[in-house]
Design a binder for these strands. Structure first.
Lengths: 229, 229
DNA sequence: CTGAAAACATGACATTTATCAGTTTTTAAT
DNA sequence: ATTAAAAACTGATAAATGTCATGTTTTCAG
């Protein structure tokens, strides 16, 4: 198993690429690799994080519990993404839970290896800043979508998002399979409503399903649905 | 009129406090002060920003236009807050419009004075990063609120937010007066729905109004309304 | 393989929210 | 002060979404 950050491809995708050789060596020496089974938590809302998690494989949902007991999924993090940075940077407990939605392999990087570099290597800090700026922009988009689009539009959009970001398997199903409940938590609706709309899409022939797997049959139509037709 | 950043109180509240004397001097020499009348834009979605705006006085709404022609207000920026940083950091056009909701006095700081410091002073970069981490956390909260709370709850919450962040005038009205349309764009609902709920609150005696001004009469009740009673 | 639990699905109905079509009030310019 | 335009407001109605109840299918441990 690949075990040095210096050689890890994942690093290409995240802020760690802005670290110097020596800084990276220190990170690599202090990191630990963990296997997380589907359904298991990496951390939970309110936890004090002593480091960040770098995803090597698999996907995690980042969610926040609302007052009425429903989870809202705020982001799906996959290969190359770093989780928990916000908590480490602001030195607060985390406001999100991270739960694996597929089997995962992640590296845990203790916060000391990070904070020192944050204070001394402006390139690294700037790189982290750029990532966070991107996340913030996406969060703004989510706010607009949730408040201005119908559930039907948001579900159609979610399917396109899943295809674009996680691809399809050999049989034409979305490679990342989410439960109906997770789907409803992504778009911010009741599970029954999500199921109903999925059935409707199936009847219309824009998607096909097999168990909980979903495949896109008519992408053009799906795009129209996002626009509200 | 106070015109040196070095002496500007506003700086206390934002990332500029992490700049060195010399860096700040450069910023101060290159900045320009602008007066923006209520209703006027500072910048619009899609603009390429050549700098950031530091708010000395007044309030601006940061909003994004949705496909169906409605604005969604994502944030209200007031004294001490810096607008446009995300666009400057990621070197993209801005995804938000900034329009004054009260008369404003802002300083425009050309991007060159900022980017150099971002690349060389990690304390400054880290400070900006901390602010952005905070904004991102707030954005997550907004997502959860919009998707899980009713319009009534969100409007009650908005009033409490306005009181806590902008205070009240001598007559007990919220110091920041927003139009009904702006209120509806903050909570993400139709203007008529917002008006209806405001009338309902008035009938119940939790608020009182005078023209477009709104005053909180029963804060405890309002807090209950946020919780869904 | 089997049975219990979890997830999925659907119908009936209630509730929330948006939309449309107007009226009244406020604002601001002359 | 007058008046046109903008904003606030209200009612009626339609559409979207949530909730509850219940049946069916899938999953998975033993």
């Amino acid at each position: 198993m690949e075990s040095r950050c210096e050689n890890c491809i994942v690093r290409q995708f995240n802020s760690l690429r802005a670290m110097s050789k020596e800084e990276l060596k220190k990170v690599s020496d202090s990191k630990t690799t963990k296997i997380i089974k589907k359904g298991q938590p990496l951390f939970e809302e309110g936890d004090k994080l002593n480091g960040v998690y770098c995803v090597r494989n698999g996907v995690s949902k980042l969610s926040k519990l609302s007052a009425n007991g429903k989870d809202q999924i705020v982001k799906l993090a996959s290969k190359g993404e770093v989780m928990g940075q916000r908590s480490v940077i602001s030195e607060e407990v985390t406001n999100l839970s991270a739960i694996a939605v597929s089997d995962m392999e992640v590296c845990f990087i203790p916060k000391d290896s990070i904070t020192h570099t944050l204070q001394s290597n402006p390139n690294f800090t700037l790189e982290v800043l750029r990532h966070m700026a991107h996340d913030l922009k996406e969060a703004d988009d989510v706010i607009v979508n949730i408040s201005q689009k119908t559930v039907k539009q948001r579900i159609a959009e979610a399917f396109l998002y899943l295809k674009n970001n996680f691809g399809e398997d050999e049989d034409g199903f979305l490679a990342l399979t989410l439960s109906r409940e997770d789907i409803s938590n992504v778009v911010g609706t009741a599970t029954e409503s999500a199921i109903r709309i999925i059935s409707e899409f199936k009847k219309k022939g824009v998607i096909h399903t097999s168990g909980k797997k979903i495949g896109i049959k008519d992408e053009r139509k799906l795009k129209e649905l996002v626009e509200g037709f």
